[in-house]
């Protein structure tokens, strides 16, 4: 039973991991992108649109490469566009990051539900959802031998390629941020853009790159949610507040993607733990769902109380940079 619990916690945690890794990459460049929840919606719906177009124009058996590649690429493209909008407004036009991010979330959730709703209408079913079972079956393929390995298989091997990529991306991001020249430059941009600029780093380019890559990573969280976790079923608003939870996870992980891996599983576990208490009323379940937010608050408070330089948010987080400001 514990194995099942961990398995389900991981499944819950993966979208959060994508989102928080994306947001950490973004925040390291000094951009506080509160549009992540919207971007994750767009990442999801873009994948759904891609998959929908492919599945519904399919004559025979699907091509295993295309059925993965098309939703994947359309998802990446969708979130990239969102990242570009954010960058254009906050970096090029130096707009307020909080306002832009919130507007992006409104916009993104709108896009998700609008196209979702339109597709649902197009299929003309009684259900308020679209089902993309073929695509999903490819996206949720796990190791074929996982079932034979008991608890070990269930905990470690029973996930799809996207889940593993989430972990790989998080580790990779950690490594790049900490141990490469690009990572050093990126951190400098987020900490002190004037210094980075004086050191010959193209601040705007780094901000653009980090934010766009971050958006694409976060968007994959939306794609994973629909195609694997939700078995290819898109229904409006089903993704819920996971985007905000991903932002909470960034704080929990004190801006380190590798801690985010553990954190995402923990958050996933907290999200579903109420199912594991017997005789828990519906109302008490709602209280349990509060847990990830409360845990995040506690981490936020502890970090601020200890006031250790290494654990603080990037120093210029949320501020626009203009070289000739004086």
């Amino acid at each position: 039973m514990i194995a099942t619990f961990i398995h389900r916690a991981v499944m819950q945690g993966i979208p959060l991991l994508f989102g928080s890794t994306g947001e950490i990459i973004t925040e390291k460049s000094g951009n506080l992108n509160l549009g992540i929840p919207g971007i994750m919606y767009v990442g999801g719906i873009s994948g759904v649109i891609g998959a929908f177009l492919y599945e519904h124009n399919l004559a025979g058996d699907p091509n295993p490469f295309l059925i993965i590649a098309i939703p994947l690429l359309s998802s990446l493209l969708g979130s990239l566009v969102m990242g570009l909008i954010y960058c254009f407004l906050t970096v090029t036009l130096r707009a307020n990051q909080n306002v832009t991010g919130l507007a992006l979330t409104t916009f993104g959730v709108g896009i998700g539900n609008f196209f979702g709703g339109s597709l649902i209408k197009l299929v003309d079913t009684d259900m308020p959802s679209i089902t993309l079972s073929k695509t999903s079956s490819y996206f949720s393929k796990t190791f074929p031998f996982a079932d034979n390995l008991g608890w070990f298989g269930e905990i470690f091997l029973s996930y799809s390629f996207l889940a593993y990529s989430a972990i790989i991306i998080a580790l990779l991001a950690s490594y790049i941020i900490k141990n490469t020249r690009a990572g050093l430059n990126l951190r400098a941009v987020g900490e002190n853009p004037a210094t980075a600029d004086a050191a010959g780093i193209n601040v705007n380019r780094y901000k653009y790159f980090a934010t766009c890559i971050g958006s694409m990573v976060a968007g994959l969280g939306g794609l994973y949610y629909v195609m694997d976790y939700a078995c290819g079923i898109w229904s409006n608003d089903a993704f819920g507040d996971r985007g905000w939870l991903a932002i909470a996870l960034v704080i929990f992980a004190v801006w380190r993607p590798n801690i985010s891996i553990i954190g995402s599983i923990l958050f996933g576990g907290l999200f579903i733990i109420h199912n594991y208490f017997e005789n828990l009323g519906m109302s008490a379940q709602e209280l349990f769902k509060m847990a990830p937010y409360i845990v995040t608050l506690i981490v936020l408070i502890i970090v601020s109380m200890r006031n250790k330089k290494e654990n603080q948010p990037p120093e210029s987080l949320g501020l626009s940079y203009f070289r000739e400001e004086r």
Binding site: A103, L104, T106, F107, G108, V109, G110, I111, G112, N113, F114, G117, S118, K121, N236
Partner: peptide, 11 residues
């Protein structure tokens, strides 16, 4: 169209 259209316009 569906209602979420307004969110897109607002955005």
């Amino acid at each position: 169209l569906n209602d979420s259209f307004s969110e897109i316009i607002t955005g």
